[in-house]
Amino acid sequence: MTDSGQQTPAAEPLEVLACPDPVAAFFEAHRTDRLLALRTSGTTSTPRVIVRTTASWVDSLPRVSELTGIDATSRVWVPGPVTATMNLFAAVHAHWAGAELSAEPDGATHAHVTPSTLARLLAQEPASLHGLHVITAGDRLTRSTHRDAVAAGVTVSHYYGAAELSFVAWGEHADALRPFPGVEIEARDGELWVRSPYLCLGYLDPAHRLHRDAAGWVSVGDRGTAGPEGVHVHGRDGAITTAGATVRISDIEAVLHPEATGEVVVLGLDHAELGQVVAAAVTRQQDVAHLQQVSRQVLTAAQQPRRWVHLARLPLTAGGKIDRAAVAVEVARSLS
Score class of each variant (00 low, 15 high):
Gly221Asp: 12
Gly221Lys: 12
Gly221Thr: 07
Gly221Ile: 08
Gly221Asn: 08
Asp222Trp: 04
Asp222Ala: 03
Asp222Lys: 05
Arg223Trp: 05
Arg223Ala: 11
Arg223Gly: 10
Arg223Cys: 14
Arg223Lys: 13
Gly224Glu: 03
Gly224Val: 05
Gly224Phe: 02
Thr225Pro: 01
Thr225Arg: 07
Ala226Pro: 08
Ala226Gly: 04
Ala226Phe: 02
Ala226Cys: 06
Ala226Val: 04
Ala226His: 03
Gly227Ser: 06
Gly227Trp: 09
Gly227Tyr: 09
Gly227Lys: 05
Pro228Gly: 06
Pro228Arg: 03
Pro228Asp: 11
Pro228Tyr: 03
Pro228Leu: 07
Glu229Arg: 12
Glu229Ala: 14
Glu229Cys: 07
Glu229Asn: 14
Gly230Leu: 06
Gly230Cys: 04
Gly230Ile: 07
Val231Ala: 10
Val231Met: 09
Val231Cys: 06
His232Val: 15
His232Gln: 15
His232Phe: 14
His232Lys: 13
Val233Ser: 08
Val233Asp: 07
His234Ile: 09
His234Lys: 10
His234Ser: 15
Gly235Ser: 11
Gly235Asn: 09
Gly235Tyr: 12
Gly235Cys: 13
Arg236Thr: 01
Arg236Leu: 11
Arg236His: 07
Asp237Pro: 06
Asp237Cys: 10
Asp237Met: 12
Gly238His: 15
Gly238Leu: 14
Gly238Asn: 15
Gly238Lys: 15
Ala239Phe: 11
Ala239Lys: 14
Ala239Tyr: 09
Ala239Trp: 10
Ala239Val: 15
Ala239Cys: 12
Thr241Ala: 08
Thr241Gln: 00
Thr241Ser: 13
Thr242His: 01
Thr242Met: 00
Thr242Gln: 00
Ala243His: 02
Ala243Phe: 04
Ala243Leu: 07
Ala243Asn: 09
Ala243Arg: 03
Gly244Pro: 00
Gly244Glu: 00
Gly244Trp: 02
Gly244Ser: 03
Gly244Ala: 05
Ala245Gly: 00
Ala245Ser: 06
Ala245Thr: 08
Ala245Cys: 03
Thr246Leu: 02
Thr246His: 01
Thr246Lys: 12
Val247Tyr: 03
Val247Leu: 05
Ile249Asp: 01
Ile249Ser: 08
Ile249Asn: 06
Ile249Met: 02
Ile249Tyr: 02
Ile249Ala: 10
Ser250Cys: 13
Ser250Gly: 03
Ser250Ile: 05
Ser250Leu: 01
Asp251Phe: 02
Asp251His: 10
Asp251Lys: 05
Asp251Tyr: 00
Asp251Ser: 13
Glu253Gly: 01
Glu253Asp: 02
Glu253Thr: 13
Glu253His: 06
Ala254Cys: 10
Val255Pro: 09
Val255Met: 11
Val255Asn: 11
Leu256Val: 09
Leu256Ile: 08
Leu256Pro: 04
His257Ala: 11
His257Thr: 15
Pro258His: 09
Pro258Tyr: 07
Pro258Gly: 11
Pro258Leu: 08
Glu259Asp: 11
Glu259Gln: 12
Glu259Tyr: 00
Ala260Ser: 06
Ala260Met: 00
Thr261Gln: 14
Thr261Ile: 02
Thr261Met: 03
Gly262Ser: 12
Gly262Asp: 12
Gly262Glu: 10
Gly262Cys: 04
Gly262Tyr: 06
Glu263Phe: 12
Val264Pro: 04
Val264Ala: 05
Val264Ser: 04
Val264Gly: 08
Val264Trp: 03
Val264Tyr: 05
Val264Phe: 07
